[in-house]
Design a protein around this nucleic acid. Sequence first.
RNA 1: GGCUGGGUAGCUCAGUGGCAGAGCAAGCGGCUCAUAAUCGCUAGGUCGUUGGUUCAAAUCCAACCCCAGCUACCA
Length: 546
Amino acid sequence: MSPVDRYYVTTAIAYANNKPGLHTLYEVIGADVIARWHRMKGDETRFLTGTDEHSVNIAQKAAELGESTRAFVDEKVALFRAAEAALLISPDRFIRTSDPDHIRSAQEMVRRAYANGDIYLGKYEGWYCPAEGFKAGSDVIETPEGTRCPNHPTVALEWLSEQNWFFRLSAYQERLEKHFAEHPDFAQPDYRRNEMLGFIRGGLEDFSVSRSGATWGIPFPIMPDGSSSQRADGTWDPAAGTIYVWYDALINYVTGAGFPDDQAAFAKWWPADLHIVGKDIARFHTIYWPAMLWSAGMDAPRHVWIHGFLLAQGERMSKSLGNFLDPLDVVATLGADGARYVTLREVAFDRDTDVSWDSFTRRYNADLANDFGNLLNRSISMANRYFGGVRPSVGPDAGLASAWTETLAGYQDRLERCLLSDALCTLWEFVGAANRLVEAEQPWTLAKAMKAGDAGAETRLKAVLGDLVEACRLIALAAAPFIPAAASRAFAQLGYEYPYGADGNGGPALLDELHWGAHAGEAGQLATPEPLFPRLEAESTTPAEG
RNA sequence: GGCUGGGUAGCUCAGUGGCAGAGCAAGCGGCUCAUAAUCGCUAGGUCGUUGGUUCAAAUCCAACCCCAGCUACCA
């Protein structure tokens, strides 16, 4: 038998301290497109996204608001889920680091590393802000009064040392270098890979994996003497501390694959095919994470794609600066499909990109309303007008057919290399070719000749419109991972049943459907055309400033 | 500071020795099937600066100016 390929793609989990901005959901949209592409191709696909909920900051913020930490993160998670639903994000699981199976998973990963001799007791030293906790060396400022943390400039920092557990990252330097050498596409794009490789070559230090004192976190499962920190009644000895950051957050990827409860599922889904992460956490995903997995006897993920940030007038979008776009505003203005398309078309997936309402609406109007939406509209209108809506079939000698073959190859290549903006650019060149065909053939002129009794003109007209309708089918279907709802609506207008589910599962193998003329000869009736992407007027394009 | 990448049209970018390019935005024209859509044409650039190599430099070399990324434990 030819086994169905399976594909496991993840995003980074988002810090659940606020409502999500488009700059946060950007990678989720991208991952969703890749997941849908694989589902439609017929790969058995798993798409994991979720939230990171353990941190001193979150517990503190909840306390300030007089809420339980649990209630606080539940609220934030609901905001994420609502925004993702609005963007038609289709995770197979939305994981939370507070999920019980994740807690078991993180603890088991710690036990495995310990059993492998990679976790040892050490001393963590650093600046400590009494109002906040340990601060990284890069995160403190020098003031005339002394060293301070930027969040609490009036509070004197203390130099503290704390007994913590450490992970022996230094033991994996050679293996990491070898892995990078043998798998050049493990970390991409190339310039990020080179940065990571440079970091490895500079020498690796061990990092701490536990914190004492913190209570909002996963209990560290091991006592200093090596015994379990779990008591007879099932509770955990707080003296053991909690698991710190990366042995919590990164572990979500194996939890999402079934670890540790469902070994069969884990064997099926691990290693992940693709982690999509922001450049700020590239090092943890391409260096810490493989070492942690190897320590547990597991394989490294196959690919890590490192994307850039959204910028507003050159500045990184962030919640603290307040210069971010609310995904719900973008969806309200552009629609879910428009928001997805425009975000991934305007922002290169491999580097930072400046975005604005102006660039978004211009792109929406140019690509979606004018180029593709109007192509669909004019094609269907003419077929309705000249042939009563009977869907015409492709012609015998369509020049678009060979152009399509080339387009599809380029589109697929870019999409599968995570060059999402380039993929759309390639596909839209074909949209332009179809629009030019209309001008070249002038169906309205052929229609006049047909009316005058020219049988040749009628044949020609039918073929031209058949080619245009076929072009629309192919474009809509190929673009469906980006614009799933619009693709379905386009199919309805074209008189085709849309065979895929709301998440892209369940239909025929996409690449079979993407052949020119795959449905030639099938009878069908076109519907009344409705603008697929209504054009935006300038006045309506600047909602929610600031 | 060190290492890496970049500075090309109003905007976003492609272009690694041979007549400066694309898309969008702008202007003009054509068409009328269409969402004032579409198609064609035009305009617009001392290719960061200065010097050098070369018959020839956006491209190679040197110096300098500016921007970004990385330079370890943030979620």
